[in-house]
Computed example of a mutant assay.
Amino acid sequence: MQHTVIDRIEPIADDVVSVALRGADGPLAPWQPGAHIDLALPNWLVRQYSLCGDPADRERYQVAVRHERLSRGGSEYVHLFLRAGRPLEVSLPRNHFPLALAPEYLFVAGGIGITPLRPMLRSVVEAGAKATLVYVGRSRAAMPFADELLATYGDLVRLFVTGANGRPDFGALARELGPRAHVYCCGPAPMLDAAEAAFPAGRFHAERFRPVPRTFGPDEPFEAVCARSGRTVEVPAGTSLLDALNHAGCRIPSGCREGVCGSCEISVVEGEPEHRDDIGAPPGRCYPCVSRALSPRLVLDL
């Protein structure tokens, strides 16, 4: 974890605040567009937010947080109780939404989904690549960074205020793309589903707020062996690997508990995990908040 202090917290759109975090012990860890960090909030919750500032600024991180009306306690705490000057621990940046090298980009943002795409747009424009941002929101006042993006990038930005001029035609946008263009999309699930159906699969990249609903076989019990401690933990059907390990005293940091943030990633030494995450676990790793086992046991580097 990194020690930070809240430098500024200020409203930037309806129900959205920007939080600037200054490193308390010197420069912060570097990051690339698409990365996010975990905020360890004082109410014992851990929440993930995309970094939306300038990757060249090692003194500060910036995130933007929308106050969700059905908040599970994270966004509500940020909006109601966080204040400038408060110390806050944050994780090292993780990036499950990396920017591929391409000559042309289309960025599609829905509401608060602008946060990972803002530094992406900055990066590719500075690199001289062709870029367009399509930014969709229910009202202009609810779209963070909209005025700044228009002022900075002009005609590269197309705003769609759904209450006034409807939604973008993704089919038409797909026909405008060059053959090597990559599409990056972040926003609510219906928008992502429509975009995914319209754009070429191999060049479409999306970051979702919630996992895609999928069906798996029934849970089977298995053993989790902690290689370093020698402890064997029984994981019954209906109990996640993460909960079983935590209850046995093997404390694993976790955030979303839905397989989308990656904060609980652990190493698998032996056995075959059943990956149920939305990230795409690398070889030899799994996310125990959702992953189970296809073998009778998993040996973990714990």
Rank of each mutant, 00 (worst) to 15 (best):
M120S: 04
P119S: 12
K130G: 13
P33D: 04
R231T: 13
P218V: 10
V46S: 03
A194C: 02
I112N: 02
R228N: 08
L150Q: 14
R66M: 07
G202I: 08
A189M: 12
R276V: 10
A13G: 06
L21R: 00
A29D: 11
V235F: 00
S229W: 00
K130L: 11
S123L: 07
D147Q: 15
P103H: 10
V17L: 09
V46G: 01
L101G: 13
A100D: 15
E126H: 13
Y153E: 07
E265M: 14
V134R: 10
Y287E: 07
R203F: 01
R251H: 14
A142P: 03
C256N: 08
S267C: 07
G284E: 13
F204P: 00
E10N: 05
S240N: 02
F209E: 00
G262H: 01
A237Y: 09
I12H: 00
V124T: 10
R214I: 02
A227H: 00
G280Q: 09
S18V: 03
H182C: 10
G238I: 12
D57W: 01
L41Q: 14
R94K: 12
A127P: 04
P27R: 13
A195M: 07
P296C: 07
I266T: 11
P218G: 07
G23C: 04
A197Y: 06
E68N: 09
P288I: 11
V46N: 08
D38Y: 06
E207R: 04
N165K: 15
A146G: 09
A293I: 01
A281L: 12
V5S: 08
L133I: 04
A227Y: 00
E10A: 14
P87M: 13
P283I: 03
C264M: 03
E270K: 12
C261V: 05
D54P: 03
P221L: 05
T4S: 04
Q32P: 00
L133W: 03
R118W: 03
E223K: 14
L39T: 05
T239Q: 09
P282I: 03
P288Y: 13
F160M: 10
L39Q: 04
V290E: 09
Y49E: 06
A248R: 02
V125G: 03
L150R: 15
E234Q: 15
D38L: 02
G74P: 08
A141K: 15
R8V: 04
A102H: 03
G284D: 13
I6E: 02
S263T: 15
R292S: 11
